[in-house]
Amino acid sequence: TMERVALGASGCWFKSGDAAFTAYRLAPELNSFSGRPRILIVPRKSPESRPLAVVEAEGQPARLQAFGPLMSEPVGTRIAADVRRWAAGGKGCS
């Protein structure tokens, strides 16, 4: 599930040149020893900073949650909707 979400985020938000995401960079952490794979959205110019948004999965079947300061911004609604769609098996960009 998280791999599908990460591929969708990469293609639709970042590789497409979407203006809403130009200030950010994707940092996937899919191989997690904690059993919680996640993707991080971090500032483009300082990827080592604290994540602005985290999408994390846990359990079987995977339960996803998205959190972080970016989720309260206008783009947060889109992030949540896209993640739900990709997690449910949907493809493509909104």
Rank of each mutant, 00 (worst) to 15 (best):
K15T: 10
P47I: 02
P61V: 09
G8F: 06
A20G: 03
K15E: 15
I39F: 06
G89F: 08
A6C: 13
Q60G: 02
G92L: 03
V54W: 01
R38I: 01
V5P: 01
S46N: 14
Q65P: 00
G17T: 05
Q65L: 09
E73P: 00
T77S: 14
F67M: 03
P28V: 09
A62P: 04
G11K: 06
A87L: 14
T1S: 15
A80T: 13
A53F: 09
W86L: 10
G17K: 08
S49V: 00
L30Q: 03
R25H: 06
A6Y: 02
G11H: 07
A23Q: 13
A62F: 07
G68N: 06
V42C: 03
S34Q: 01
M71D: 09
R44L: 13
G17L: 10
R85S: 11
P47Q: 05
E3G: 09
I79M: 14
L64Y: 12
Q65V: 09
S34M: 01
E58H: 11
Q60F: 12
F21Q: 02
V54C: 06
E56C: 02
R85I: 02
E56D: 03
S16D: 11
W86M: 09
A23R: 14
S32L: 01
V83H: 11
E29W: 00
P37C: 05
I79S: 04
A19T: 10
G89Y: 06
G68C: 11
G17V: 06
G76Y: 07
K91M: 04
G89D: 03
S94K: 04
M71P: 08
I79T: 03
F33V: 04
V42A: 06
C93A: 07
A23D: 14
E58A: 12
P43C: 09
L7S: 13
A53G: 10
G59M: 02
R44E: 13
K15L: 14
G68P: 08
A6Q: 14
C93E: 03
A66T: 15
K91G: 08
E56V: 12
L64S: 07
G59K: 07
P37W: 03
M2E: 11
L70I: 09
Q60L: 13
F21E: 02
S34D: 09
S94N: 06
R4V: 14
A62Y: 05
E56W: 01
G89I: 10
G35H: 04
S49C: 04
P43Y: 09
L40M: 09
E58N: 10
V55N: 03
L52K: 10
M71H: 05
T1E: 14
F14L: 11
F67C: 00
S16F: 05
A81Y: 00
L40G: 01
A57K: 03
T22G: 01
P74A: 12
R25D: 05
S32R: 04
D18P: 05
P28F: 07
I79V: 15
